[in-house]
Design a protein around this nucleic acid. Structure first.
Lengths: 112, 112
DNA sequence: GTTATCCATCGATGGATGTCAATATCGACC
DNA sequence: GGTCGATATTGACATCCATCGATGGATAAC
């Protein structure tokens, strides 16, 4: 995003991902998943630590899944959601400024 | 965010920042600023490349500034907004998974 | 101080979004 | 195939949010 000007459609896609991260409940969901051994958990273990109703948790999981931030897998009766670290890494890349800019702004800082 | 479980207040704060990034117009604003020599521009140069009205651009600038993603400085008649790269770097850190988790998920991938 | 320009704020409006209770769906097991 | 437990979907509601026209406030130049 920060290296090369964003076109309208790319901006829409990126914004959709950030919007998915723009809710405290969803962030706590991700944080909880990251605290689990395999970066995953079944839905029945998610509603209690969040303090939200089951439909609300289900809604948040859907939003995160549609943003491709979570993967979904059924195992018997239960459904497991798992973090997709690659996608988070992509976001990180999007936030990375080009070296050109980082240097320029650091020089400017030094002259202030 | 991904190392250590997020408390409610921290989740609120982080979510507010991501929400600020969750709009295509604002992302294009950031992208445009990053394309400028010093990572900054005056407002009068921002409304045209975005195709949004001046009040709307002003609104977006306010949202980004309140999220501390932009700095603001007056120079004569004009007001310059500048990227705050440190804040973007903090976001990047928040998205970084603990090594423990990255390794565990990579091992899992290999066994699939 | 008047004018011109730049930017912010206000008010209104349409659309998106978080939340939950109720209900539906789906899989497993007897 | 009937029942039960686990998730998803629906419908409703309140709130938030992006957008813009109109207006206000500030600053420079004369």
């Amino acid at each position: 995003m920060l290296n090369g000007r964003l076109q309208a459609t790319q901006a829409d896609e990126l914004a959709a991902i950030f919007r998915a991260l723009g809710d405290p409940g969803r962030l706590r969901l991700l944080s909880f998943l990251a605290s689990q051994p395999g970066g995953e958990a079944c839905v029945c273990n998610l509603t209690e630590p969040l303090g939200l109703s089951q439909p609300t948790v289900s809604h948040h999981l859907k939003v995160l899944t549609e943003a491709n931030l979570l993967g979904r897998e059924r195992r018997g009766t239960w459904i497991y959601y798992r973090l997709r670290l690659e996608r988070l890494a992509e976001l990180c890349d999007a936030l990375m400024p080009p070296k050109r800019l980082a240097n320029a702004m650091q020089r400017r800082e030094a002259n202030a």
